[in-house]
Amino acid sequence: MIFNIPFIAVAALIIIGLYAVIFRKNLIKTVIGITIIESGVNLFLITLGYREGGVPPIYTNLPEDVSIPRGMVLPVPQALTLTSIVIGVAVLALMLSLVIHIYRVYGTLDVRRIRRLRE
């Protein structure tokens, strides 16, 4: 049970994020919602990287009997998460800069009023 807690947190984060994107009216909150979804997905990736009894691939601090490189855990999920975080920062910055521009032109951040493009 205790090992399932991260997965429950992942599901909760993604659902909270989707809730924020769908039901919140403020654009900033939409952006926050997307960031929360992203944190959920990143948490999921990191959780997958956990191997019980695994040895981290840090060469200076290896136990004696570990063969290199087979005995160590392959750090793929960590690498994926780092990439995903970097991409997430880029998306976040882009979204916030667009929100600034929208506020300048429309004078509001209410998602119901920012819909000149419809039909």
Partner: peptide, 14 residues
């Protein structure tokens, strides 16, 4: 249906 509301776009996705 074509409301132009960003939230609705994601709602349809879900």
């Amino acid at each position: 249906l074509h409301s132009g509301n960003t939230s609705d776009y994601i709602l349809w996705f879900v």
